[in-house]
């Protein structure tokens, strides 16, 4: 890798789902960031990006959560999240929450500008071209909507995956289609969400892949949950786990066997 100067201080915004459900993704992210020459910290005082409130119309609480988290993140050179959705929230929506508060708005914009989705940070900012990992399998990659449309994350994970020895990437036929997660949408409109994820599972299985990868744990839990419900053998993992070569833990929704 090219010499990129002194080690940047990177804050890992681990996201509530990775924190609570799948710490292995957080450790994989730390490993990748260190490989990319970063000094990684996990600042205390982070909980969630506030999307559950923001997308439920509870703007006040969303702003309060952001207000408390911003000072924790502000001192770092970069903030990186293993999620396009949460990185998108910080980048695109936190500044909007403080449009009427000059001081907070400045801080929110400054933090927004240095916040990145993991694979995009590794390639676009740190110039990472390849990873040192192996995975013997055919993977279908799902582009999660926020990462894809809010942050333009599409080629970055694929580029890194291509360097994983033994791995082949397949594209979905309806790659731009939402998996039906949508946060609280999945429980508020279960029938609609269920049909959407069922169509997605069809698409995944039609690729013949044995593994499903994505960069957002919410979408992955939705798709893995559907695949397992159908008795599918497709394994679901966060892309960071494969890129970091951390596949000792069972795939999402599977136990130790």
């Amino acid at each position: 890798m090219a010499d990129l100067g002194p080690k940047p201080n990177v804050a890992l915004f681990v996201t509530c789902l990775v924190d609570l459900f799948r710490p292995s993704v957080g450790f994989a992210a730390v490993k990748l960031l260190e490989q990319a020459g970063c000094e990684v910290s996990v600042p205390q005082g982070q909980t969630c990006c506030g999307q559950p409130a923001y997308n439920s119309g509870d703007r006040a609480n969303a702003a309060e959560i952001a207000r408390r988290t911003l000072p924790v993140l502000a001192p770092f050179d970069y903030i990186v999240a293993p999620s396009g959705s949460c990185a998108g929230m910080i980048r695109k929506h936190w500044p909007a929450l403080f449009a009427n508060e000059q001081e907070m708005s400045k801080i929110a914009i400054a933090v927004a500008e240095k916040t990145w989705e993991l694979t995009s940070f590794l390639t676009d900012v740190r110039g990472m071209e390849a990873v040192d990992a192996e995975y013997d399998g055919v993977v279908a990659y799902h582009d999660s909507c926020s990462g894809l449309r809010e942050l333009g994350v599409q080629d970055q994970p694929r580029k890194l995956l291509e360097s994983v020895k033994g791995l082949t990437v397949k594209n979905l036929t309806h790659g731009q289609e939402c998996c039906g997660f949508g946060g609280t949408f999945a429980v508020k409109y279960p029938d609609i969400s269920g049909r959407m994820v069922s169509d997605k599972a069809d698409d995944i299985e039609a690729t013949g892949a044995d593994t499903l990868l994505a960069g957002d744990l919410g979408c992955l839990m939705n798709m893995a949950g559907k695949l397992k419900r159908r008795g599918s053998t497709v394994k679901a993992r966060h892309v960071a786990e494969i890129l970091a070569g951390d596949t000792d833990t069972p795939p999402i929704g599977e136990g130790e066997s």
Binding site: V18, L20, S198, M221, I252
Partner: peptide, 26 residues
């Protein structure tokens, strides 16, 4: 490693399994 039914999560589990957390938080 997953639930096919969970109290208070009927909206989720009516359609799909609920993946269990790995253990302690990150």
């Amino acid at each position: 490693g997953r639930y096919s039914w969970l109290p208070l999560a009927g909206g989720w589990t009516s359609q799909r399994d609920f993946p269990a957390p790995q253990g302690p938080s990150f």
